[in-house]
Design a protein around this nucleic acid. Structure first.
Lengths: 352, 352
DNA sequence: AAGAACGATTTGAACGCTCCAATGACCGTT
DNA sequence: AACGGTCATTGGAGCGTTCAAATCGTTCTT
């Protein structure tokens, strides 16, 4: 049988097209009695609005773009995948959909924005992996494209909404946990200074080390490129110190697993002999029993979409529907929404 | 500045709407001289066709649906993510996009198809994780929705296109590799009989064990639910046999890593003392140095989209464009496309 | 030389929806 | 009885595109 349209539903319910449309989009405008009749017709004909037609008219596609990463680091890459999964689930619950695209770098990503937007496919974007002087956010902001980022603007004069997880709090919690377990010589194995996320995570450890008066010796603060090999080498150097640390807090699970590998290679047991705590709670961490700081990715995804909703609502020329209850009327908020900073959770396993 | 439309481009090039449309969709219909003029206007105004408008008219959205899994098994879950990543990249190259959705089970997945299709959002689907009597493929086939699956129909009278990786070949190669290394007592650690993928992978081992006349003792063929704990327990049982195997081929990296854990716990070195080979080449396998059978996921994704293209082309009521060269004219192929079975690749690491 | 056939281009209509302005019904007030 | 006002509903227009048919000029056929 042919597809049901507004027209056919209208005929079936003996009303006009527009009344059916209203029954769906603005039920408060239509008489209760008519409403039930229209609704009956809708379900009887199994009608669903035609997405493309609606998009053409309203210029809203309910599609949100997100970038899926080209298989980068094997260990930490899964963070994005989990985020995407949550994003999809929450978007679905909101009647939106996630559209994937890939890009090799920020530059290319921008040109994809161009493609995706000029076809008017997408309402908005969710970005991740923001960094200082991010050309992507600049590009989007300049064109007034709605978007939110998972990740802080990091120093840029970010005037956009963002959601992030407090990395410093994570490493602080990890360090505090080790202190509570009796450790006094706790090292930090992170990335070279200059990476925003890395510096943030380092600061949590440094803060608590200072506050708790820990014994921080030279060589207790390493900065190497992310990876298993580099992590292992850096851990080896720490263990070879005259007074080696008894615990290592790491900026990533990659580094932590490198350290973990070095420990077991030396016959040392992670946790019992030297404690190691990673970051991101990768599956590998769970497998080998590595303690790690877990990011609340599901909450982050939900927050991103909630924020995006606000941004789109504010942006909407005609204002939202009455039933949306988007704050006090006439509030006329024009600035970016309030950022959301979530707390990570320390997952304690055998290694610390 | 306002968005460019066919109309504005047409005015700019002093031709009609339709000629511009033809310049884009059927260049052979338009005079070369006019063509260059139109193309100049297009690039000058930075015109891009409006996706929704085109979809409304042509009933083709260039959108392909794919399901993203709710975080299931941690170790093997990444296979899907890598597949999705490749799918996105190849779709992008074809001018298509991947739209994500989630579902808890097959039943729910079908009702999502309903939603996604009735809004005419999607042209087709790429399914994965097929099994015998898969209600999803039945649902889609019945409604003549274009789709392909990554995974065989497994016994169902599947009349749809599919792409899969030859699991038996993978375990056969793994076993052969161990035989070449001098092993004679090679066990198989897999899932309980009845799972199609599991039985397939078991058969590769069994085939070669028979052909090479290996010493297969009772207890050398285990079937347990996937997981680290179960894998570890099953491996322990094997190692406790009077005559334990010298190598274990596993149906998954989860199981293999379970075995790997048991080995190291006993002070045995994987590879040197007892060889272990996993399946799926997870990141964890790479990290700990576990040999594993890698699926050519990128090739699989490319094959899926190529096949989908054929299906959509065949389906198209009016036939493709002349420049598409889709086989001999009048071939009138109506059946499903030829399936594609890809060969996996054994990645040898320290463990075997 | 008239008609047929072709190539290049144009015009009108339609896809299904929502916006906008307008209509009629009903109420209470003058 | 005529007037403004609210509520419920309606018809027309238009979003940007492609399809189908029509137009016009040119060349091939008989």
């Amino acid at each position: 049988m042919a597809r049901a349209t507004l027209e056919s539903v209208a005929r079936h319910a003996a009303v006009s097209r527009q009344t059916v449309s209203n029954a769906l989009n603005a039920p408060h405008l239509v008489h209760p009695e008519t409403l039930t009749r229209v609704r009956a017709a809708i379900s009887e004909l199994n009608y669903r609005p035609h997405h493309a037609a609606r998009t053409l008219r309203t210029r809203r596609s309910q599609l949100v773009g997100a970038r899926i990463e080209p298989w980068r680091d094997g260990v930490n890459g899964a963070v994005l995948d989990r985020f995407l999964q949550s994003l999809t689930a929450h978007a679905q619950a909101r009647g939106q959909r996630i559209l994937l695209f890939t890009a090799e770098d920020d530059e290319q990503e921008c040109s994809h924005y161009e493609d995706l937007l000029s076809g008017l496919d997408l309402d908005a974007f969710v970005l991740h992996g923001t960094h200082a002087d991010d050309r992507r956010t600049a590009w989007l902001a300049q064109r007034r494209v709605p978007f939110v980022t998972f990740g802080r603007p990091w120093g840029s004069t970010g005037t956009h909404g963002w959601v992030d997880v407090d990395g410093a709090e994570g490493t602080r919690a990890a360090t505090a946990h080790l202190v509570a377990a009796g450790h006094r010589r706790i090292a930090f194995l992170g990335w070279p200074e200059g990476s925003e996320v890395g510096d943030d995570r380092r600061s949590g450890w440094a803060d608590l080390a200072l506050a708790a008066g820990l014994e921080v010796r030279p060589g207790y603060d390493a900065g190497v490129a992310d990876g298993l090999g580099t992590g292992r080498a850096a851990a080896a150097a720490m263990l070879d110190l005259d007074v080696p640390p008894t615990a290592i807090v790491c900026a990533s699970d990659s580094l932590a697993l490198g350290a973990w590998t070095e420990l077991t290679a030396r016959g040392l047991r992670p946790g019992a002999d030297v404690a190691v705590i990673g970051f991101d709670d990768s599956t590998t961490a769970a497998v080998v029993g590595l303690s790690s700081v877990a990011q609340p990715l599901d909450d982050a995804a939900a927050a991103c979409l909630r924020m995006l909703h606000d941004v789109l609502e504010t942006d909407r020329p005609r204002g939202g529907r009455p039933d949306d209850a988007d704050g006090p009327p006439g509030s006329g908020r024009t600035g970016p929404p309030d950022p959301v900073l979530l707390s990570p959770r320390l997952v304690v396993r055998a290694s610390g």
